[in-house]
Amino acid sequence: MNDLKDRVVRMSGSRVERCMRCGKCSATCPSYEDMEYHPHEFVYLVERGDVEKLLASESIYKCLTCFACVERCPRGVEPAKVVEAVRLIAVREQGKNRLKPDDLPALTDADLPGQALATALRKYAK
């Protein structure tokens, strides 16, 4: 197992080898059209150890972390957690945070789920 795959698997806790390639995650994904790599490809590329491709792709910022794929994956692979782990590897490198905490108050409202706030910190360029 290469180092990056190791880190993704450890951080996500996902058992990528459980994937049976049904494509349910991509079938259910609301951000599908915006993504270069789709949820099932995230799982497959991590399983193959091709994490660099994902790190370089804008797709990691397109996932809404809505967890629909986690909810519906029949094999318990939890693709959103894989995406989140790849994203974390990208943003933990210096200066990759896309939003500054000071920018947040202007962008939020009372209906915004707390979970979305946390991920928004690393996701959006706007």
Partner: peptide
């Protein structure tokens, strides 16, 4: 079609919107 169905939504006109993936075409 090689892929799974992610969501089925009943529409007001009585049809069902079947959202699925086509893995060979890499399409939703």
């Amino acid at each position: 079609i090689k892929g799974a169905v992610g969501k089925i939504s009943p529409r007001p006109d009585g049809t069902l919107d079947v959202q699925g993936s086509d893995l060979l075409m890499d399409e939703q």
